[in-house]
Each structure stands twice: as structure tokens, then as C-alpha cells.
Write a protein that binds this DNA or RNA. Structure first.
Lengths: 214, 214
DNA sequence: GTCTATATAATGATAGAC
DNA sequence: GTCTATCATTATATAGAC
């Protein structure tokens, strides 16, 4: 159960020192969690309200409706993902190291990607406003990985014959597809196998050869 | 509109010479199409009935309910996919050729994979009976691709250093992830890029080197 | 701004006529 | 076997009190 109507005593359960979330913030946070878990079609406004612990009217005061709240939630999730990913890809090291760090990053594999998840939701993909942040996120991701690979080529760390854009698409696809395989198996193993398979292929193009992947 | 109550004159619209489908068959076919397009949560029994052109009661006569019909539909789709895929992977040619044929196979990229799609549906993955055919399908796919790769190694067509299982997982993941990237972009290009990126990496391990991918 | 009450349609399933 | 009628529940949104 969530507390209700308790004035300033409400809290979102985050770390001590965090300022209490506004109703609007709590709605977005709840929407993000439920969209990740259940998808757009499977997430009802009522479920979001109950998860956030607010009444029916509050949502329609802050947002025009379900899709408007979902848009805010998706934008926020994409933003966070971009920030976290850029940090990994911008770290020091060879191009191989940085791509490997991205691929081997700790993930909640069985939960899948909260952004990739949305691409399987008809109502999301068909709404240009809802699809836009997904498109922007994956477009950015492929470009950023391609940059890293191209930089590695300029530095002589990677074979010049590689197509940075195509290889970057493969890297992004292996992650997204790895989630699919893992969820089908209810086991992260296929995700890890897919990642290591790609890294092994990539390693043969790196000079000097990186140590065998863990 | 679909015809109703027309006795033996009903037809499922397939090629001339095809025997008219039974009500049960039409329900399964309709369920397969709608599950592919809208997912499990997004597909209502009513929508299936209307698409099949039968009344409410018929479905509950032939199937125990929504999940039971979905199970029949998913099983059939997985069966068909397995047959079609095995045909490609069992064709003559080098291991590289056969994996390339699988990756470059004509696909309705923006529609995605009807089996992979189901792994993003909470209600499917949480039901052991519904998840089982997904698990079996992808497990078979990875094993079959790994077999092809291992055979290529024995024949001396592929570098012995490759891990067949991991590489096979990468191949399957690139396809599934390619769909995700393509749907986000509403454009098959990222799918094609991901596939060609992986093929280029794989090509460097093939002897003699295959011609540059189309 | 937040709440409860209400409205309208859709969902998933059952009952029982034919 | 197939159909229509019905039902309890949920989804999405609005109205209006506080």
C-alpha cells in the first residue's frame, strides 16, 4: 500500500536526503516502471495512479491523458539511458575496450531494455510523438558507437576495413536481440553468449589483440 | 466484412484449390495474425472472432479461452518458422553461405519476428505454457546455427578459433535486435546495417574469403 | 491541486437458444 | 457446433466537490 493524503509527510522511498517528489514526479516515475514491466498497452492509467499513490484527478491535472504521461516517461528514460551510455563510451581506453565496456555493462537482462521494449508496442510506434524519442535514442546510440569505432581506426587500434556504421548497428542489435533470447529462455545466458560472440569477432580486428574476453 | 452463417460457402481467401478452412483453423490463423501485429495483451478475443468471422461461442467451444487459443497460434507459428529456417540452413554451400542466406533472407522487417515479439509480452513470458514454444524455438535456432558453424570448422571453411555457440547466439541476436532498431526508426535500414556488419566480421574468418556481401 | 463519483466503451467469459 | 444475449470487471476519461 502507498500512503495517501498525508500532506508533506509523503516520500518516494528514495535515499535519505532526496527531496520529496512532487505528485508530477511520482507519476512519471511510476509510469516509467510500469511501462518497462508491462508495456504501453498493458499499462492502465489506474495502475499508474495506484502505484504512485495519487487519486484519479491528479493525473489529468498534470497530463492530458495516458499518452501524454507516457511521453514524459519515455523521454525521461531515454535521457537517463543516453547519459549513462555516453559515460561508458566516453571513458578512456581503446575503441575495443569502450565497446566491450558497453556490451559487458551490468544489466538487468531479464527485464530487457525499457526503450527497446516500446518498439514492440503498436500504439507507441504508430504515434509519431511517442516513437520520436525511441528513434532519437537508437539513432544516437548507433552514431556514438560508430564514432568510437572510427576513432579507433584513426588511432590504428582497429582494422581500417571495418565499416563503423554497420558494425555499430551490429553492436546495438546484439544487445537488443540478446534481451529477446534471454527472455525467451528466462535465463541471461543467451544474452551473454551473444555479447561474447560479437566481442570475439571484433577482437580479431583490434591491434594489439585485447585479452580474451572474461 | 466477413461472411457469416453461409454454411459450406465460407472460404478463407487463400489460393484456389485450398480446401475451405474449418472454424477452428480460421480462429488459429486470425489469432496468429493479430498476435503478430498487436501482441498478446493487445489482442482481444473479440478482435480475433471478428477477424475470423465467427460468433462469440465458437471460440469457447474449440478453445478453453484466450490463452489456449494463443498457445495453439504460437505453436503453429513457431513450427512454420522452424521449417522455413531449417530449409535455408540445410541448403548446400559453405557455412558462411548458409548463415548469410539466413541473415539476408527476405523479411518483413518492420513487422518484426512473430515469435520474438511474444518475449516482450509479460503475460506470455510469465505463463510457462506460453513461453515454452518461444524457448524451444530460439534454443533450436541457436543450436542449428551452431551446428552449421561447427560443420564449417570441420570442413576447414571457418577459423577453428570461433566459438560456434556464442557466434550462433550473436547471429540470432542481430536478427532480433535488428527488428527493434528498424521499428524504432520506422525504416529497415538499421536492420540491414546490423546484418551486414556481422557478416563482414564473420567473413574475415572464412576461408576462402567470400565475396563482399551485397 | 487533489480528491471522489460517475460515464462510456471494451474485455474476457458464461448461459442457453437453435 | 454455432449463434446471440448477458455479465462482472477493467480501461480511459470527465465532472465537480473540497
Amino acid at each position: 500500500m502507498y500512503s495517501r493524503g498525508m500532506g508533506n509527510h509523503q516520500n518516494d522511498g528514495t535515499a535519505i536526503g532526496t527531496p520529496p517528489s512532487s505528485t508530477q514526479e511520482r507519476l512519471v516515475t511510476s509510469a516509467r516502471e510500469l511501462l518497462w514491466e508491462r508495456g504501453y498497452v498493458g499499462t492502465s492509467p489506474k495502475a499508474i495512479l495506484q502505484h504512485a499513490g495519487v487519486g484519479q484527478g491528479s493525473m489529468y491535472h498534470h497530463f492530458a491523458g495516458k499518452s501524454d504521461l507516457a511521453l514524459a516517461a519515455i523521454r525521461r528514460t531515454a535521457e537517463d539511458m543516453r547519459t549513462a551510455t555516453d559515460e561508458i563510451l566516453s571513458a578512456p581506453g581503446t575503441a575495443y575496450d569502450r565497446v566491450a565496456a558497453y556490451l559487458l555493462r551490468e544489466r538487468e537482462v531479464l527485464r530487457g531494455c525499457p526503450i527497446g521494449r516500446m518498439t514492440q508496442d503498436r500504439d507507441v510506434v504508430q504515434d509519431p510523438a511517442l516513437r520520436a524519442p525511441l528513434d532519437a535514442m537508437f539513432d544516437w546510440l548507433r552514431r556514438r558507437i560508430a564514432e568510437v569505432l572510427a576513432e579507433g581506426q584513426r588511432r590504428g587500434e582497429l582494422a581500417a576495413g571495418l565499416d563503423p556504421a554497420a558494425t555499430a548497428a551490429s553492436v546495438a542489435a546484439v544487445v537488443q536481440g540478446g534481451y529477446v533470447l534471454a527472455r525467451a529462455a528466462e535465463d541471461p545466458a543467451p544474452f551473454d553468449a551473444a555479447v561474447h560472440g560479437l566481442l570475439a569477432l571484433l577482437a580479431t580486428h583490434a591491434t594489439p589483440p585485447p585479452p580474451v574476453a572474461p
